[in-house]
């Protein structure tokens, strides 16, 4: 393989297309975590929530034969772990870092456990049909751009829509104003008649639902199977991207696509047998990018002021 082949149009188009697709699970987790953190709760359990979402999505899709039901199952699994995180963070007021990490272990462990119980361990893991590609009429026929933007499965379109919805929710609604107040200054919100605990529960559950959906997209729409450790650090990368995005859905989209491109490039280099660099280094690409992005994104200046701090009256 040579450098020339990397610059061919077909290669670039397929790279960007798959970069966008690969960005989706991470983007969902980032959007969810932005909502959660805007309310002042730091949920570090994304990695585990995505794992359980991936398993639940796969299992439901395998049983029912419907990819959409699979995605809904992922949402439900996420909400369940979100409720648990809310109980830890809001009701018990425990250290959120520790609660989050325990959620990672719980999510990964239970996903693997239930998978082995139900599907066993085999050389050829069971597969599902996944989600069909839905080209958008007319737009899909635009040269180059049509293939990149308008020939995706429904999860991709829905995720882009969610970027806008989360944006409006946080900055255009009365509920969003309450969420941001709770994350910046909970006692001010409380004295203004806002239910701090209620908002934090809602945002933690909603955020985890997004992460669960992200996990389900990974298994149902992309890999079309479930393997242990298939989330492969995406939950952690999402947390880094929340900081990079400065808690804003718009920048989250940019950050996630950047990450998706790095991931897609790494896959392609491996597949093409690009030998100039050992493939282990290529595998590192998304993670190195995350570190670079964090350095560029700067300090936590834009973080909600009450992030990770339980609210106590007086």
């Amino acid at each position: 393989m040579s450098w020339d082949s990397l610059l061919q149009t077909a290669f670039i188009i397929s790279l960007i297309t798959s970069g966008i697709r690969l960005a989706v699970p991470v983007l969902l987790a980032v959007l969810g975590e932005i909502i959660t953190e805007r309310a002042g709760v730091q949920n570090l359990g994304l990695e585990g929530i995505m794992a359980l979402g991936a398993f639940a999505g796969f299992a439901a899709a395998f049983t029912t034969g419907s990819g959409i039901i699979g995605l809904l199952a992922g949402v439900l699994a996420g909400m369940l772990l979100g409720l648990l995180m809310g109980y830890f963070a809001v009701t018990l007021k425990v250290n959120q870092v520790i609660a989050g990490i325990s959620l990672v272990l719980l999510g990964q462990g239970s996903a693997n456990f239930f998978y082995r119980q139900i599907f066993g361990v085999s050389q050829r893991p069971p597969r599902i049909a996944g989600l069909p590609e839905v080209p958008i009429p007319f737009l899909a026929d635009i040269p180059y751009l049509g293939g990149i933007l308008f020939r995706h499965n429904i999860a991709v379109y829905f995720t882009v829509l969610l970027v806008v919805i989360v944006w409006v929710l946080l900055f255009g609604t009365t509920w969003g104003l309450k969420v941001r107040a709770v994350g910046e200054h909970p006692s001010a919100a409380d004295t203004s008649g806002v239910d701090v605990a209620g908002i934090r529960y809602a945002c933690t559950i909603l955020g985890a639902a997004f992460a669960g959906l992200g996990g389900a997209v990974l298994s149902v729409a992309q890999m079309k199977l479930f393997t242990e450790n298939m989330v492969a650090g995406r939950g952690w990368i999402a947390i880094a991207l929340v900081i990079f995005s400065r808690w804003h859905p718009g920048l989250a989209l940019a950050g996630a696509v950047l990450f998706g491109l790095a991931d897609a490039l790494q896959f392609r280099f491996q597949a093409l047998g690009f030998e100039a660099v050992p493939y282990e280094f290529l595998l590192m690409l998304p993670y190195i990018l995350t570190i670079v992005v964090l350095l560029a994104g700067g300090r936590r200046g834009a973080a909600p002021a009450a992030l990770g701090i339980p609210y106590e009256k007086e």
Binding site: T174, L177, A181, H185, S187, D190, T191, S192, G193
Partner: peptide, 30 residues
């Protein structure tokens, strides 16, 4: 009640602080 330690969100505008927690005339939007 006006508390001794002011209960205002420093990053919000005056108007945002005043309407915080109140229903708007075009719910759910501000």
């Amino acid at each position: 009640m006006v508390h001794q330690h002011f209960q205002l969100v420093p990053t919000f505008s005056v108007a945002e602080n005043i309407v915080l927690g109140l229903p708007s005339r075009r719910e759910p939007f501000l």
